[in-house]
Amino acid sequence: MQLFPCPFCGPRSESEFHFGGDAGNHRPEGFRDVTDSEWTAYLYERNNPRGAANEIWMHMACGEVFRMERDTVDHRVAQSFVLGEGGDNGGMA
């Protein structure tokens, strides 16, 4: 059971969190001009990195969405960020 740092509530058990996908998976806007491959990439193509990962999570207890940098191999959590702070945050869904 991992501990994730919610930027609002502090360290909490991973079972309280909901995965929101890769950070930086920006939604292609303007549906008429978005190509099939752009939309497919947004919907389905995931980074699934080995090692450093940059992810969006929601803390279900407080309902806040945040970005977290962690390592998928050793499960070390580097840092978590309030959305809009600490660099590129958007594109979670």
Binding site: R27, M92, A93
Partner: peptide, 12 residues
């Protein structure tokens, strides 16, 4: 639905 609304509210 609550989670879906919150996700989009905060992201967009």
């Amino acid at each position: 639905m609550h989670a879906l609304l919150e996700e989009w509210r905060q992201d967009r």
